[in-house]
Design a protein around this nucleic acid. Structure first.
Lengths: 339, 339
DNA sequence: GATTAGCAGTCACGTGGGCGGAGTGCCAAG
DNA sequence: CTTGGCACTCCGCCCACGTGACTGCTAATC
């Protein structure tokens, strides 16, 4: 029921408000945009938008600011996700291309995203569950101390120390390692966990006890779902935009540090296609009422999908955030797909 | 030149000010502490302290607050580092005892310290340089793709992917692995790096190229000094105490995220014995003028010493911070010493 | 019917004066 | 050296006022 021009006015309001941080009035709109109509006409449109609850006035005689609903319309229908500049694309390639392992790649990714968007950035650790066991290695550190190393086909390495009840020599360990490799290799982490647990039962040798311990350790390791871990960067941006939050930036920081909140939110957002955006009150259930989250998924072959995104004030540059998040996620999926 | 009682007054001022966040007057001192003298006497002492620049008055007729110099005297001569409560000690044991590997241990440590002190906590990653090579493992992921794994005697694992120019089969890799182990095992990481680089020269076989690549990768890996990495937790505490900073909490957060600043500061603090404390303007060179840092070292056998500490406003509970930092560092040194 | 100009009304915000209270500094007496 | 008393200072608070930036409405215009 809102005219085309009214929506354009909404777009203008969102853009100007995000930039200036101040309620925008009809006069400043005609000054900064070429609408070809007078301020009074804009005022009429604004009255319409207010009726639809897309914008609101903080005080009776002040300019207007977008409501959460207004941002929603903006994001869904009005935002143009303009691709990143060539310089920025280049920055992604070079900065992320230098990474040696997954840890470093994710660390660089999250820093990059926070710099591109000037927002707090979050990356979810890819899950281990669907990866396949490539190799199991046992390294004896001391007679009763064995380092169990689990290597997945995507190159992720998990290590864990096992304490044995009785000493085991190198030859024994070599035999056990072969046995364990036989059992676990090629299985997904989840399957490997059950298989290794089962192996525990076949207590047919003198080293049953040792085998038991090692198999249990490996099974336990394989069950680790790293996807419940987040990498975070750019908390300073949260402080920088502090006045945009209703002062309770503290709650947001605590939620970020808890991690659980963001993980649950990511879980919900997984239902959305493409780039998911949650705005303000939509996150109220998570205690993030004045916060918006922009996220999308990236895929690591052989693993569960995981997500990356940014967290910021409702008043954020959605276009920029969506563009950056999309570009980096695409790059990540591509790079990880190759290895 | 300041009397014994004057110092006691300073102690009272620091304690009350830290607690109440408000300038403390002579009257409130006699109310809250048993000095057995009147407010006027306290005032005389305060005049002395002010002459020595240990305290200052924000306005002509207001209570006094400690200066940086006052905090310094407090920390050096007046603070009683009372041991942690039994509950807290127990918490350290149980919470840190559950850790499986070094990463997790450090992560738990930094969270624990930030909770104990209600301050931002920082732990420096132990350096790799002085650890010894326990084992080198090569895992073939694809014909031209080899995962190099470097295991130190303290159980730390570093992995890195190597791309080969020509395919290498399992048997070849096994031979190369034995060779590399022969060269590197038992050496410190630093020595191993040079030894492996040298190995690159002996290009005597068809697989010279492959050997070259792998040795170079491992040498590169051994050179990694992880000690230039920090683990951080409790940034929310910085926000919580925001009004204690002269408003520029942003600079502090950026310094923390840069990491370099803290690492340099830790480097300087390494000169001090025991628990080092840097107060306010003493950190001005680092852009941390309103910030205090309490840190101490912990030792990982076979590695360089590294540090852990807390960062907070000048007005912090130094006794509590020093006690917690000391207790946790001791526990860490002990635990890591065993493995 | 949409658009425009003009005008009155409203409210946030900054400024300045007045007031109370907390706390000091000093002095003279104990 | 300590104490009680007293004058003084200055911050923070409150309120009242003027100003400026908008809006909403109405009547005229295209």
């Amino acid at each position: 029921m809102v005219s085309e021009r009214s929506l354009a006015v909404l777009r203008a309001i969102v853009q100007d408000y995000v930039e200036s941080r101040e309620p925008v009035g009809s006069k400043s709109i005609v000054e900064r945009h070429q609408f070809g109509v007078s301020a009074a006409t804009i005022r009429n449109d604004m009255a319409l938008l207010e009726e639809e609850e897309l914008i609101a006035a903080p005080h009776t005689s002040s300019g207007r600011i977008p409501t959460d609903k207004g941002y929603r319309v903006f994001v869904d229908r009005l935002a143009d996700i303009r691709p990143l500049s060539a310089t920025q694309r280049h920055a992604i390639e070079t900065f992320l291309g230098e990474s040696n392992d997954l840890d470093e790649l994710l660390g660089r990714t999250v820093r990059l995203v926070s710099q591109l968007t000037r927002q707090l950035a979050v990356v979810q650790y890819p899950s281990f569950a669907r990866a396949r066991v490539r190799h199991v290695e046992l390294v004896s550190l001391a007679p009763t101390r064995v380092l169990c190393i689990l290597i997945s086909d995507s190159g992720q390495v998990e290590q864990r120390l096992a304490e044995l009840d009785q000493p085991a020599d190198e030859a024994t360990l070599a035999r056990l390692r072969d046995r364990l490799n036989e059992v676990a290799a090629g299985l997904t982490m989840a399957d490997a966990a059950t298989a290794l647990s089962a192996e525990t039962e076949h207590a047919d040798r003198a080293h049953a006890e040792v085998l038991h311990t090692l198999a249990a350790t490996l099974a336990d390791q394989a069950k680790i779902t790293r996807s419940d871990r987040l990498v975070v960067a750019g908390a300073a941006n949260l402080v920088r935009t502090e006045q945009d939050f209703a002062g309770n930036i503290l709650g947001v920081m605590e939620a970020i540090e808890e991690q659980v909140v963001i993980l649950r939110l990511f879980g919900e957002m997984a239902a959305d296609e493409g780039i998911a955006v949650r705005i303000g009150r939509e996150n109220a259930a998570f205690g993030l009422g004045d916060t918006s989250v922009v996220s999308t998924s990236f895929a690591v072959p052989g693993r569960d999908v995981s997500r990356l995104g940014v967290v910021g004030p409702t008043r954020m540059d959605y276009s920029q955030s969506m563009a950056a998040v999309r570009a980096v996620a695409r790059y990540l999926s591509r790079t990880l797909g190759e290895s």
